[in-house]
C-alpha cells in the first residue's frame, strides 16, 4: 500500500514537471513573438496598426502559459499512455518523415510520376508490406492515374521532371 502511494506521488511529480516544462517552452515562444510584434514596422496612417492584435495575442499566450505552469490537474492514465512510444517505433517514424523530406526535395527534379511511384513502393516496403508485386502495381498505377488526371484531364500541371511527358 505504502509503495503504491509512493509510486503514484512520484509519477504525479514527474507529470507536473512535464506540464511545467511545456509551459516554459510556450512562455519562451510568447516572449519571442512579443519581441517580433513590438518590432513590426509602423504604418504612419493606420488607426489600428498591424502590431495591436499580435501584441495582445503574445500577452495572452504568456498568461496562459503561467496558468498552465500553476495548473495542478494531473494527467489521466490515458493521456500519459499517448507518450508511451518505444524507441524502435520512434525510429520508424523518423525514417518515414525522412522519406517524406526526400520526396519533397526531389519532387520537382525527378518529377511527380517517378517520385510518387518510388515513394509509395519504398515506404510501404519499409513499413512491412510483403506483397511486392501488388505493391509495385499499385504504386505505378496510382501515380499514373493521378498524373494523367491532373495533367491531361484537369490541365493542372504537376512537375514532369526527367520523364518526357
Amino acid at each position: 500500500m505504502f509503495y503504491l502511494s509512493f509510486y503514484q506521488k512520484e509519477v504525479k511529480e514527474m507529470l507536473k514537471k512535464m506540464n511545467q516544462r511545456i509551459a516554459l517552452i510556450l512562455a519562451a515562444i510568447a516572449v519571442f513573438y512579443l519581441f517580433l510584434s513590438y518590432n513590426l514596422p509602423k504604418y504612419p496612417n493606420a488607426i489600428i496598426d498591424a502590431d495591436v492584435v499580435p501584441i495582445g495575442l503574445g500577452y495572452l499566450l504568456l498568461f496562459l502559459s503561467v496558468l498552465l505552469f500553476l495548473d495542478k490537474t494531473v494527467e489521466t492514465e490515458a493521456e500519459k499512455q499517448k507518450r508511451n512510444i518505444s524507441k524502435s517505433n520512434l525510429l520508424v517514424l523518423g525514417v518515414v518523415f525522412g522519406f517524406i523530406l526526400i520526396y519533397i526535395s526531389l519532387l520537382e527534379i525527378l518529377g511527380f510520376l517517378l517520385m510518387t511511384a518510388i515513394f509509395i513502393f519504398g515506404c510501404s516496403l519499409f513499413l512491412g508490406y510483403k506483397k511486392h508485386v501488388t505493391n509495385g502495381i499499385v504504386s505505378v498505377v496510382f501515380s499514373f492515374a493521378i498524373y494523367a488526371l491532373f495533367n491531361y484531364l484537369l490541365r493542372i500541371n504537376l512537375p514532369s521532371g526527367i520523364l518526357p511527358f
Partner: peptide
C-alpha cells in the same frame, strides 16, 4: 493493408498541398 494505406495517405496530403501553390 496498413503499410500501403499509410503511404497513400501521405501522398494524398502532399498532393493536396502541392496543388494549392505548386511550391515545395
Amino acid at each position: 493493408p496498413r503499410p500501403l494505406l499509410i503511404s497513400l495517405v501521405i501522398i494524398f496530403s502532399l498532393i493536396g498541398v502541392y496543388a494549392i501553390s505548386f511550391n515545395t
